Simulated scan of single mutants.
Amino acid sequence: MHKTGMIVLGHGSRRKEVALQFTAMVGRVASRIAEAQVLPAFFSLGEPTLADQVRELVVRGCTRIVVMQYFLYNGVHIEQDIPQMIAALREEFPGVEFVIQPTLQDDPALERLLVDRLLADGGE
């Protein structure tokens, strides 16, 4: 049986308040997932990094790490940069299974949220 850890990976920002808001949101999500540890990480422009949090979860005994890419669209970070980071982490931790979840692009739940928001403030 694998002990699972989860990382919500955001882009990051130079603005400290953005990092604090992202970290708080991940904390709220974590409070709803009892079966795994959930940590925030930043692709760039912030700490902790993806590698920092993977190392933390490994120290905590996790052998399976789920990475949720908290990005709206599949740009160069998703298609090139993050896969390179994950490849390096797989080499560093060959005994750890990495599960990479897709971005929010084309997610029906996000589309439902947009419809709900639009209708709440102007729908007939």
Rank of each mutant, 00 (worst) to 15 (best):
92 E>R: 09
108 P>D: 11
77 H>T: 06
30 A>H: 05
107 D>E: 06
67 V>P: 01
38 V>Q: 00
92 E>N: 07
110 L>Q: 04
72 L>I: 15
38 V>F: 00
42 F>E: 05
33 I>K: 02
12 G>A: 12
30 A>K: 08
28 R>T: 09
83 P>S: 03
106 D>V: 11
21 Q>Y: 05
100 I>P: 00
115 V>T: 05
53 Q>H: 10
38 V>C: 02
99 V>T: 00
73 Y>Q: 08
93 F>H: 10
103 T>E: 11
41 A>G: 01
49 T>M: 09
23 T>I: 08
29 V>N: 07
104 L>H: 03
111 E>P: 06
71 F>R: 12
51 A>G: 02
85 M>S: 13
6 M>Q: 13
65 I>E: 00
79 E>L: 12
69 Q>M: 13
104 L>I: 15
22 F>H: 03
32 R>Y: 01
105 Q>D: 14
5 G>H: 01
5 G>D: 05
75 G>I: 14
64 R>Q: 12
44 S>V: 13
117 R>S: 01
64 R>D: 10
39 L>R: 02
48 P>F: 00
111 E>D: 06
122 G>D: 09
74 N>G: 04
12 G>L: 14
85 M>H: 15
48 P>L: 15
109 A>V: 09
30 A>C: 08
39 L>C: 04
74 N>M: 11
41 A>L: 00
4 T>W: 01
84 Q>T: 15
54 V>T: 04
20 L>I: 05
19 A>T: 10
42 F>N: 07
114 L>N: 11
8 V>P: 00
36 A>H: 00
90 R>C: 04
11 H>W: 06
96 V>H: 03
70 Y>W: 15
32 R>A: 14
21 Q>T: 15
80 Q>H: 15
65 I>V: 15
86 I>W: 05
36 A>P: 02
94 P>A: 01
114 L>Y: 04
10 G>F: 15
34 A>G: 07
60 R>T: 13
124 E>C: 08
28 R>E: 09
70 Y>N: 07
93 F>C: 12
32 R>T: 13
16 K>I: 00
92 E>M: 07
64 R>G: 04
55 R>N: 02
12 G>P: 09
3 K>N: 01
23 T>H: 02
5 G>M: 03
38 V>L: 01
27 G>C: 08
75 G>P: 08
52 D>I: 09
85 M>Y: 07
112 R>T: 13
57 L>G: 02
120 A>S: 08
68 M>D: 14
115 V>W: 05
22 F>R: 03
50 L>F: 03
123 G>T: 04
19 A>S: 11
19 A>E: 15
90 R>M: 08
123 G>V: 09
21 Q>M: 07
68 M>P: 02
51 A>K: 03
111 E>N: 10
92 E>Y: 06
106 D>H: 12
109 A>T: 11
64 R>V: 13
72 L>C: 04
86 I>V: 13
6 M>F: 02
39 L>D: 02
109 A>L: 14
